[in-house]
Each structure stands twice: as C-alpha cells, then as structure tokens.
C-alpha cells in the first residue's frame, strides 16, 4: 500500500491536468470551429431554438405540458408512475382543458404528447398531429384560413432522419415565430 500512495497521487494529478484541462480545452477549441447554425447559439430571433418555451395563449401553438414550468435552469420530468391515480387525474384535467380551448376537436384526435409531460420539461417539439389538432383554434383567434396554417405546418415539420430513421416532429418555437411573421405580413 505504502509504495503505491505517492505514485497514485502523482498519477491522479497528471490525469487531473490532462483530462480536466487539456481534454476540456481541446473540445472547447473544436466547438469554436462549429458553424453558426449548428452550434448552441442564439438564433437571429434572439432565442435558443433547442430549448422549449411555454406556450399557453390561444393564439400560439401550445407546447407540451411540463413538470417544471419550462425552467431551463432546473429541467426535469414529472416522474409519475403509469398507475398513479393523482397523475391520471392530472392527465384527465389536461384533456378537459384542451377540449375547452379546442371545442371542434374530438377526444380521440388528441395525440398523447399533448397531455403528457416531457422528460426534460423543456421539450422543444410536438408531434405533427399535435400541431394539426390546434389549427382550428388558431385560425379562429388569428382570423387566418386553416389552409394557410396547414401550409406552415407542412413547411415547418421536420421529417425523420434521411426520411428513414426516427420520428417526425415540429419545433413549436419556430412554428409560432412563423405564425407571428405571417400575421404581420398579412396586416401590411
């Protein structure tokens, strides 16, 4: 044991300098080479597009329920189990609220992502179906035709990777920015 302590401490210090210092700085350096639009930066609109925002007003597409109120400095999920009665009551309440805000929609048209909280609490996306069921409400509030809004959804939906792998989805922030842009141009 004794013969090992000093080399162990010295080796630890060398590793400390190398892995905490040199490795981290190398990755930092590489991150500087990343092109603007693919690294973690504010977009032109002044927002972080990767980080979900809370949307609850009727004129915007709503984002998913969040267990942490879209706090990006304390993200997290609900951690509610599938059989928890309080949780199931909460889901029922979300369904009822949704139906109040979207009276033209039938219950079996609501996709599950709109009534369940995400894992991070800051999920930036919703499913395409989740956007489509909100079209009627937004068309009414904003006084734009449903077809136009469907076009925006079509435009903004992110296909699965190479069209082959994974889910299809829509970034809610980008979608709502487009919506605002459209309303401004229509007014002019």
């Amino acid at each position: 044991m004794k013969n090992n302590i000093i080399p162990a401490i010295r080796l630890t210090l060398v590793c400390l300098v190398f892995f905490c210092g040199i490795y981290t700085l190398t990755v930092y350096g590489i991150s500087k080479l990343a092109p603007e639009d693919s690294s973690f930066k504010k977009s032109e609109s002044g927002f972080y597009e990767n980080v979900g925002q809370s949307f609850t007003s009727d004129k915007y597409f709503h984002s998913r329920p969040s267990a942490v109120g879209y706090n990006a400095a304390g993200s997290g999920g609900s951690n509610k189990g599938p059989s928890n009665p309080d949780y199931l009551a909460e889901v029922q309440a979300r369904i009822d609220t949704f139906l109040v805000h979207n009276p033209d929609i039938k219950k079996d048209e609501i996709p599950s992502d709109l009534v369940t909280a995400s894992g991070s609490g800051i999920d930036p996306h919703i499913s395409v179906q989740a956007a489509k069921v909100q079209v009627k409400r937004i068309a009414k509030v904003r006084n734009i035709s449903e077809t136009t809004i469907h076009q925006i959804i079509e435009q903004q939906s992110e296909k699965s990777l190479l069209g082959l792998f994974g889910t299809e989805k829509i970034n809610v922030l980008k979608l709502n920015l487009k919506l605002d842009q459209l309303t401004t141009t229509l007014k002019q």
Binding site: R64, G77, S78, N79, K80, P82, S83, Y87, L88, V91, Q92, I95, K107, D108, E109, I110, P111, S112, D113, V115, T116, A117, S118, G119, S120, D123, P124, H125, I126, S127, Q129, G166, T167, K169
Partner: peptide, 25 residues
Amino acid sequence: GNTAITQMGIQQQLGSMEGKEVRFG
C-alpha cells in the same frame, strides 16, 4: 402506451409519452 390513458379515450400512436421527448419517440 399506457393502458390507463388509452381508457381515457386518447390516441396512443406515439406510445407512452410521459417522461419522453418527441424528438426521440
């Protein structure tokens, strides 16, 4: 998906989404 939520009359085409992210599925 979660059978308890199916019983509420909600579509579960995406599967069980509580605690999951839409971009992964």
